[in-house]
Design a protein around this nucleic acid. Structure first.
Length: 781
DNA sequence: TGCCCCTAGC
């Protein structure tokens, strides 16, 4: 019986004015006392209120109370309302439970066409496709499968679960299809990234509504079809904020930040308005392009429109300022946050790293209450980019020891590059083993980083293995392989891979040609070098850059074609740099072209007065022709200008520790043993024909002293140490900062034979693999 | 009496 004091319209008014829990409780108790709640209409109003006004009422505490009071079950209505309440408050399990309750209730209430869409949504929320299929069977049995709402929800369910065959079946067999049916099936293909099928569906659509068009723009954006996205966008009869946002984020994701910003400005001019989504997208574009000005004015706009209170926008602003290297603005926002989100903490780490303030980055990191993989990644890659390779590896080890975080691709790439730079092969191999053991995906970037590491540390076979196992090889992967093979003396194989690359349809870029020409240079392949240089310009339409010219000058110069090399320098469209002249100077030294050498050397010293190498080369040219006075003058200039000859330095990794030797070094703790070993080496190699090549030491000193200086070359110390602390068949791997000298080269060849050990020396330019008395460089370096 | 389906960002 209805109370005279409470009816539907009074209740509606009361609920409209209800802003506090106490008021709600009054309405509820009045409904219960008067018995008004027994009516489904009243109960559903109260239920809906408690679902939508979660800030006032916690539905969990009330739903069953309200539901259990209902007596009038004339149809499924109250069940549907209840199911929707559960669904909207993220309790899909209870939605399904209620359906089961309804099916075996004794009041003979049956599900209707409204029940199934709710129920199917509950299955989607539970990601339970098996349950969904069961419901689909019920739908057919109950005869609701002709209802367009039910069918559309089924299409949607199959589509979001990725079962496009079933989605398509429901779609194709539908007696009636409305725009939602088309949109739902299209959404499935969009989600799968199936551009071809999506295009077919979209083309067939009778009316290309705004939702479908927006989805297509999103899909084109994700697949990188920017032009198609734009074509669709401009042809749309009407556009909404979603269309604009989709187009902007399409540009943003392809790195076309300028276009994204222009589009945002146009959108503003047209008075479309802004929301949280578009602001975040355009702030990402500002962050990506480091356009601080635009970022700042968007910040102003955000404050004006009051959207700055969203935590996501706050995060995006901090990220934008960090990436634009305006660390002060980022700090200000960060410090003013009432609650700091982990994304903002991470942005601050990246921001400090970007500014090179690694100390601050570490401080922020240490203060963080909870760290995720992004935090570690920002810190580790920050150190790697700052060239702090020891710290990069130490942080990685710290992270692994901590144990909670699985490294992501950025971290792995940073650590592997650090290993490459430090020649820490053991550590690098460990990281690779970790990747394999954990089945992590080796994508193009990670694979290329691994190839680069193995190649630069002289492990050609391991590099090749990585290359062949890669599913997607980018042009950089091929470049790393081609460059690496050439570096390791396998120039023929390198050029073969270059042909193979072209055969696979991969378009070479300018870096590829640096590698190819570099390979020709290492082996003195003048004709091949000329051929590739020409084909780069004429076939591949790549303008040679200064590096390509440098390679060619070096190649021609080394082959003794000094005049042609100098002519090439004269023909360069850009000003030759020190490396180009340096290559010619080196060639002059090699071929005893003292006149040209003197000319080029003096030019170089003018160009870069503080470079040690040119002074040394020039003084060596004077020394070799016996012009001791000129040489003394150069040495004098060097002292005057405080040009110091960079000492030769070799590093060798043994049992996980990197040992460094400098020429003339006496500081190593095991120096006495090393010297004894050196004596033994000398005796053994002298027996098979070694004679010290004292020409290498171009100081004006006597022969005996020359020999001693020669024996203090860093690579000799490293070889001796390597023989002491490693066992065959492990190769002795050494990295040298300068080029290996003639004498050390001869000695290494003989040691590899006399001691039956492989020695791998990476000098400033190439690898030398010494095996059984010969070297992979074929005497050409 | 009423209620049910499809679109965008980090």
């Amino acid at each position: 019986m209805k109370s005279p004091t409470l009816n539907q319209s009074i209740m509606d008014t009361l609920l409209l004015q209800c802003h506090h829990l106490t008021q709600f409780n009054q309405i509820l108790s009045q409904s219960i006392v008067t018995g008004f709640i027994k009516d489904t209409y009243a109960a559903s109003r109260i239920l809906n209120f408690s679902t939508t006004q979660s800030s006032i009422v916690n539905l969990n505490n009330y739903s069953r109370k309200i539901f259990d009071h209902v007596e009038n079950y004339s149809n499924a209505f109250i069940y549907n309302t209840m199911m929707r309440s559960y669904l909207q408050t993220n309790r899909p399990k209870e939605t399904v439970f209620l359906y089961k309750l309804m099916s075996d209730n004794k009041k003979s209430v049956y599900p209707d066409t409204y029940t199934y869409p709710l129920l199917i949504q509950a299955c989607i929320a539970r990601a339970n496709i098996l349950e969904g299929k069961e419901i689909h069977d019920h739908v057919v049995k109950m005869g609701f499968d002709s209802d367009v709402y039910v069918r559309n929800t089924l299409i949607n369910m199959y589509a979001v679960c990725g079962v496009m065959i079933d989605a398509r079946k429901v779609f194709d067999e539908s007696p009636v299809r409305d725009s939602v049916s088309w949109n739902s099936i299209l959404a499935g293909y969009v989600q799968m990234g199936d551009v071809e099928e999506a295009k077919l569906v979209f083309d067939k659509m009778p009316d290309k509504n705004i939702i479908a068009s927006n989805s297509m723009i999103v899909l084109f954006g994700r697949c990188g079809c920017v032009i198609e996205a734009y074509r669709l966008f401009v042809n749309m009869k009407e556009k909404d904020i979603v269309s604009w946002t989709a187009m902007i984020s399409c540009y943003e994701q392809r790195g076309m930040y300028q276009e994204a910003l222009v589009m945002f400005l146009e959108m503003n001019r047209k008075g479309i308005g802004i929301d949280e989504v578009v602001v975040i997208s355009v702030l990402s574009a500002c962050a990506g392009s480091a356009v601080l000005e635009t970022g700042g004015s968007i910040h102003g706009l955000v404050v004006k429109t009051g959207t700055s209170c969203y935590v996501n926008i706050h995060n995006a602003l901090i990220h934008m300022y960090s990436m634009c290297a305006d660390i002060a603005a980022a700090e200000q926002l960060f410090d003013s946050s009432s609650h700091i989100d982990i994304i903002s903490w991470n942005s601050m780490i990246s921001g400090y790293s970007k500014c090179g303030s690694l100390k601050n980055a570490r401080e922020v990191f240490d203060k963080m209450p909870v760290k995720d993989v992004v935090s570690w990644s920002a810190l580790i890659s920050g150190h790697s980019q700052a060239g702090m390779f020891d710290e990069t590896i130490a942080l990685f080890q710290e992270m692994m020891l901590y144990g909670q975080i699985k490294p992501d691709e950025t971290i792995l790439v940073s650590v592997i590059s650090a290993c490459t730079r430090l020649a820490a092969l053991e550590q690098g191999t460990w990281v690779h083993a970790y990747i394999k053991k954990n089945g992590l995906e080796v994508n193009s970037i990670l694979g290329t980083t691994l190839i680069d590491m193995y190649m630069k540390l002289g492990c050609v076979e391991s590099a090749k293995e990585v290359f062949y196992k890669m599913d997607k090889k980018g042009v950089s992967s091929w470049n790393a392989l081609i460059l690496g093979l050439a570096m390791n003396g396998e120039v023929e194989k390198s050029l073969e891979m270059f042909s193979e690359m072209k055969r696979c349809g991969v378009v070479p870029n300018e870096i590829t040609f640096v590698a190819v020409l570099g390979g020709c240079r290492h082996m003195g392949l003048v004709d091949k070098g000329r051929h590739h240089f020409d084909s780069m310009i004429n076939t591949h339409k790549i303008e040679p850059n200064i590096k390509h010219y440098g390679c060619m000058v070096d190649l021609l110069g080394r082959a003794g074609l000094l005049k042609e090399a100098e002519e090439l320098i004269d023909s360069m469209p850009m000003a030759p740099d020190v490396a180009t002249w340096g290559a010619l100077l080196g060639a002059c030294k090699k071929h005893g072209a003292n006149e040209m050498g003197e000319r080029v050397g003096l030019k170089l010293i003018k160009l870069q007065p503080d470079h040690d190498g040119f002074h040394v080369l020039l003084s060596n040219i004077y020394a070799s022709k016996g012009s001791w006075e000129d040489m003394a003058e150069i040495r004098g200039t060097m002292t005057e200008k405080r040009v110091v000859k960079i000492p030769g330095c070799s590093i060798i990794e043994a049992n996980g520790i990197v040992h460094e030797f400098v020429a003339g070094d006496t500081g190593h703790p095991q120096i006495h043993e090393i010297e004894e070993m050196l004596d033994m080496i000398t005796e053994r190699v002298k027996m098979i024909g070694y004679a010290p090549d004292t020409n290498e030491v171009c100081f004006d000193i006597d022969d005996e002293e020359k020999e001693t200086t020669l024996f203090r070359h860093s690579e000799k110390l490293a070889i001796a140490f390597g023989l002491m602390v490693t066992n065959p068949p492990t190769p002795i791997r050494i990295m040298k900062n300068l080029r290996i000298c003639n004498d050390c080269h001869t000695l290494a060849k003989l040691v590899s034979k006399a001691f039956d050990r492989e020695i791998v020396v990476r000098d400033r330019h190439v690898f030398h693999h010494f095996r059984q008395g010969s070297c992979s460089c074929m005497e050409y370096w």
